[in-house]
């Protein structure tokens, strides 16, 4: 069983986490949902497309203008409350590394803290525990939040990802976060070059084998773009191919821009893997 705040899911379910940016400068949508109403429309859309989770972020991952905690909170806290009010069945995740922001959004109704920066703020696990929220434990190779990887190498990137995320998960457990509310994420492209992200994808089964539910965030990222030599905006097919590989390995949560396309891809692979029934099969069985 997977428990994300107020919501529970079976171990055979694959979940769509739709990205909702309350930022003026994120790489994919370039501020399309910066305005609160536009972001809310995005929540409506992805909910109608069947996303189980929305991941609301107030700061883009890449380097840029300094956004302090007060500004980050002003972008996400009231928005979380509004989404909580209108979509009681939706899991609300907030993409933040700051404990102060995590505390405020959980008070406003968030179910899940998606710490994309690998536990940079040690008090984040305490916040999750205090609110009964779930947490995503990512691997970044120890980089500072909002920095790009530069000449980072690993003896074994998958070993590093497994060791660091499992250690982070243990830290969350020790802080009092429920066992069924801890998710690990190898964090493609975070502290990794394209070769690292490809290897993480190829060997994702080793992360799944830890027993912790695995989240993958592949959507339109640079490792897809560099692999296919395609700009942002033309990376959907490459994203879906990587998604298929991760789904076959058993990744449970998919952080995505394109919900419908990813859902179909994961449903198809999940069914090939024997974890889901066909929707409606009669051919040759009449």
């Amino acid at each position: 069983m997977l428990r994300l705040g107020r919501h529970e899911f079976g171990d055979d379910e694959a979940l769509m986490m739709a990205i909702v940016n309350r930022t003026p400068d994120s790489f994919f949508d370039k501020g399309a949902t910066w305005a609160e109403d536009a972001a809310f429309e995005r929540v409506r859309l992805v909910a109608s497309q069947g996303a189980e989770i929305v991941d609301i972020g107030g700061i883009k991952a890449a380097p840029g203008a300094e956004i302090d905690a007060a500004e980050e909170k002003s972008r996400v806290v009231d928005f979380v409350a509004r989404v909580r009010e209108e979509f009681p069945t939706l899991v609300i995740s907030v993409d933040t590394w700051r404990a102060e922001v995590g505390d405020a959004v959980c008070a406003a109704g968030a179910d899940l803290i998606n710490d994309a920066w690998g536990g940079a703020d040690p008090e984040l696990v305490d916040v999750a525990a205090a609110h009964g929220a779930a947490i995503v434990c990512t691997h970044t190779g120890g980089v500072t939040p909002r920095t790009r990887p530069y000449r980072i190498e690993y003896d074994d990137v998958v070993r590093s990802a497994v060791d660091d995320t499992v250690a982070y998960a243990q830290r969350a457990l020790d802080a009092g976060v429920a066992k069924e509310s801890i998710v690990i994420d190898p964090a493609h492209d975070f502290g990794k070059n394209t070769f690292h992200s490809l290897e993480i994808t190829r060997r994702l089964g080793e992360m799944v084998a830890t027993g912790w539910p695995v989240l993958v965030s592949l959507s339109n990222k640079d490792f897809v773009g560099e692999t296919l030599d395609l700009p942002v905006g033309e990376r959907l097919l490459g994203t879906l191919a990587a998604t298929s590989v991760c789904a076959m390995a058993g990744a449970r949560i998919y952080r995505v821009h394109q919900v419908t396309e990813t859902r179909q891809t994961v449903d198809m692979v999940w069914t090939i893997a024997g974890r889901r029934r066909p929707a409606r099969a009669i051919r040759g069985l009449q």
């Binding site: 889901r276 029934r277 066909p278 929707a279 409606r280 099969a281 009669i282 069985l285």
Partner: peptide, 9 residues
Amino acid sequence: EYASIDDPV
């Protein structure tokens, strides 16, 4: 063994 999510029969 041939069950679907939405039973066609």
